[in-house]
């Protein structure tokens, strides 16, 4: 079983976000970067669990510059066998999908996993695009994944419920919460990660179809208005007359 896990390098969830003075770029100075949680906790860990029971190899692929290598090494420390960094700036979902598809197309992966979305750009796009470029089926928002022979059984979220599907390999899947429990790298894994192969692949020509022209911090709420706990009925009046919420 050859498994590929796509990982993104994202600011840690608790990061206080800021932008350049002209609001044209994210200010990365002093920001702690991590593996995108959906890529790590669910996609990568489930891939490792499958490898442990079925045998095989787990490769990490990442599109980004050399600044991402600490994040990639963390994926190796958790247990991936090897990693590939495609040396391109990940600034458009389609261009990222094109980079990954160009690398993947003749490698014979049985299973390609990604997180359901990144926590910085919240696009939820690369997995589906990659599936289209590779002409593979795509199962989104998977919460359970089991493999038997060359068939995957997947439970995934759909509008208004969940669905169980069967699909022959290869396929692309996006992982949602529930696929696996988080793993913390141990010292042996961290030591081993230093010597695991991390190959840098040059970028191919790709089509950048979108770009971000400016950012704006979300407006905070105005001061919280407190209501006396002895008179919660005042809340209902405020919700009706002031907030017009009911």
């Amino acid at each position: 079983m050859k498994i590929l896990v796509c990982i993104s390098n994202v600011p840690d969830t608790t990061t206080k976000i800021s932008f350049s003075s002209d609001n044209s770029a994210f200010n990365a100075a002093g920001v702690q970067f991590v593996i995108n949680p959906y890529d790590e906790w669910y996609a990568l860990v489930r891939a490792l669990e499958l490898k442990e029971t079925l045998g095989g190899n787990v490769t990490i692929v990442h599109v980004g510059g050399p600044e991402s290598e600490a994040t990639i090494r963390k994926g190796l420390a958790i247990g991936a066998d090897d990693a590939v960094r495609i040396d391109a700036e990940p600034n458009d979902a389609f261009a990222v999908a094109e980079q990954i598809s160009a690398y993947v197309k003749d490698k014979g992966f049985d299973l390609i996993l990604a997180g359901k979305e990144t926590i910085n750009y919240n696009g939820s796009m690369v997995g589906a695009m990659l599936a289209e470029l590779l002409n593979m089926p795509f199962i989104s928002m998977a919460t359970k994944l089991d493999i038997s022979g060359t068939t995957a059984t997947i439970e995934h979220d759909i509008d208004g419920g969940t669905e169980v599907v069967e699909c022959s390999l290869p396929l692309v899947l996006s992982a949602n919460k529930g696929m696996a429990e988080a793993r913390i790298p141990n010292m042996r894994g961290i030591m081993a990660a230093r010597t695991k192969p991390l190959t840098v692949v040059p970028a191919v020509a790709a089509d950048k179809l979108t770009s971000i022209s400016s950012y704006e911090l979300a407006k905070g709420r105005t001061e919280c208005k407190f209501i006396d706990a002895a008179h919660p009925e005042q809340l209902i009046d405020l919700l009706h007359n002031e907030a017009k919420a009911i």
Binding site: A128, E132, S140, D157
Partner: peptide, 20 residues
């Protein structure tokens, strides 16, 4: 959920820029 599965797939097929 359907939109997240289909819209980017169609975008890749059409080489259409997408905002999700």
């Amino acid at each position: 959920f359907t939109g997240k599965e289909i819209a980017p797939r169609l975008a890749a097929k059409l080489k259409a820029g997408i905002v999700a």
